[in-house]
Design a protein around this nucleic acid. Structure first.
Lengths: 340, 340
DNA sequence: TACTAGCACTCATAATTAACGAGTGCTAAT
DNA sequence: ATTAGCACTCGTTAATTATGAGTGCTAGTA
């Protein structure tokens, strides 16, 4: 159990260290207005805090820095989540509205806003389109041997793909195939189209059909349509300003990791569904991020669950500000409606 | 005028420096098999080369390093362009074929191959779709108030966009508008759609029409379709292995510059149209790339002019290998046909 | 004349040492 | 329970010294 004063000291150490990135000494602390004790008294308490594992010293004659356990305590006990500053939220809403025409834009804007607000790097992931259901398939001929397949999802997303046939295709064959696809696949989540069509085709014994090759080509093209995951990175260059990332050895793993879109997407998707979650230092289990903390949150848009947004900074990040800004932005997003 | 031996020495210095990134001394050179002169003799020639501005010394007691003028001489006189190794080119063709289904993929693959081959960073730009001409506009309804506009270009590119109308739209109004767009805009380069439609709409005096708002909405959506420039970056992390980019001060400008897609695209587009062009050090005029050299080339695909590809490395780059690999890849691309 | 051996000189780099000072832990006094 | 005082630690910085790779120049040789 921490005494009142120890709590004050812990808090002061972390606040100070967050700002300066330098170990904090007892004398520095005793000069603060909110700590009217002598440096010796503070030293005693610091020794206790160190015994409890909340702070540590880089070496004998340096001040103390918070340990991961210390940050954890700080975040759990001393950071208030969900304090909404109405004026600020309103301002964010206004900025978001400018981009409310397309969800892509909105995601970018949210990520950019959050990184501007905090000076950390942000990653935002849009809705997982693999879960959206097929609402409609259509086809539009370009010339005798080419055309465009279109798919529309229940969320109103559209994707297309050009198909090139081996030979000339009769319009009625195309029409029939499209009808078939609509009959059999509407309502199927995009992620399962390929599996689903296997079953259906097997049932139908299409092999006997005229123009089997062309039909199959059309079908394969349709189920092979890629829905790009809408991932957006904001404020990547902020990392260059962090004192703990001033050497190649620390910078390189971070940059290489963040540039790997695929992995980043999987990571975001694998995060537990929560409102605002803080992962401190090595807690995240990613080697490249062992000196980083991450604040993540799922967000909703116009009430509907939409995606995930994350903020990545050094372990010595400003948790209070970060958590608050994250709260603001997801609240602003919640209140924003897509224009459609 | 350079003597035979001075040429040999210049070449040896550059070859050596390219490999080691260390200033080259006279004794080191005299130990080479192809330079059977005493170090003193070499020193004399080095002094001459320095007077001519081809090499320089970082400080009195170091060896020599090539100057930008020296590299220029080397590239212009000692690097053979267009030496095609048929077997290697064939191998590249094979690898490219795997991705010949879509031009996007092909561009990625070409950039990746080139960066794997050279260990430098590559940037590839696809065709400038602003120059492609509109071949066709079409519309597909989703529900009463929404639908998808499609445009097809003369190169077979397809783009789409969702349109949301203010109110219910009669199918014949849509049909008419689409017909109008096709009549008036087919053949117009995508980059000029907006200007063009202004003129046409003015002529037509649509204002009197029923459902004017919805028609305009459809028209605006169509001409507002963005054609994403297909830019692809390969081997970005190669830069981390270059000894001249081991400090934040050199690394940061490079990474910040390369991450700015927009600027990168403009830069590539602004390059002079040539087959293989080498820009050495500060020649490129870009501050962030003042210590980089760039090998650029336009490339053709299946005979048609297609885009630009660039290779970026430190000024101390392996020009011979770089130029040769660039030659191979554009030759391989020239021989590749898109599957359509 | 063209080349080479030899030598004094230069200067970045690495290693060593010394001075500094921020910070600590402990003890004794209040 | 708190604080003043003091000896001690140890990372950082500056100053000093060696080291050696490389140079330019001169004088000698083929």
């Amino acid at each position: 159990m921490l005494t009142e004063r120890q709590l004050l000291i812990l808090r002061a150490i972390i606040d100070d260290y967050i700002q300066t990135a330098q170990p904090v000494g007892s004398r520095t602390l005793s000069k603060r207005d909110d700590l009217s004790f002598s440096s010796a008294t503070i030293r005693n308490d610091m020794a206790d805090l160190e015994d409890m594992g909340l702070i540590e010293k880089p070496h004998t004659s340096a001040g103390r820095i918070p340990s991961e356990v210390g940050y954890r305590y700080y975040v759990d006990h001393l950071v208030e989540k969900r304090i909404i500053d109405e004026r600020e939220t309103f301002r964010l809403e206004e900025r978001l509205k400018e981009s409310a025409k397309e969800s892509e834009l909105l995601i970018r804007q949210a990520a950019d806003l959050l990184s501007d607000l905090t000076n950390y790097t942000t990653v935002a992931l849009g809705p997982n389109s693999q879960m959206e259901k097929l609402a409609r398939v259509d086809f539009m001929p370009i010339d005798e041997r080419r055309g465009v397949v279109l798919i529309v999802t229940d969320q109103g997303h559209v994707e297309h793909r050009t198909v090139v046939f081996e030979s000339r295709v009769a319009p009625d064959i195309i029409e029939e195939t499209i009808r078939l696809l609509n009959d059999r696949l509407v309502g199927t989540p995009l992620g399962q189209l390929k599996i689903r069509i296997g079953e259906e085709v097997a049932k139908l014994q299409l092999a006997q059909r005229q123009q089997y090759d062309n039909m199959m080509q059309l079908i394969q093209s349709t189920v092979g349509i890629q829905t790009p995951s809408s991932l957006y990175l904001g404020g990547k260059k902020n990392i260059f300003n962090q004192p703990e990332f001033q050497t190649i050895d620390t910078l390189r793993p971070f940059l290489e990791w963040i540039d790997e879109q695929e992995r980043l997407t999987h990571w975001l998707e694998s995060l537990p569904n929560r409102e605002i979650y803080v992962s401190i230092g090595s807690e995240n289990g990613i080697v490249a991020l062992q000196n980083c903390s991450v604040i993540t949150s799922d967000y909703t848009l116009d009430g509907k669950t939409f995606g995930t947004i994350a903020m990545i900074g050094p372990t010595r990040m400003n948790y209070r500000h970060g958590v608050q800004m994250m709260g603001q932005i997801i609240e602003a997003l919640r209140r924003t409606k897509l224009e459609e």
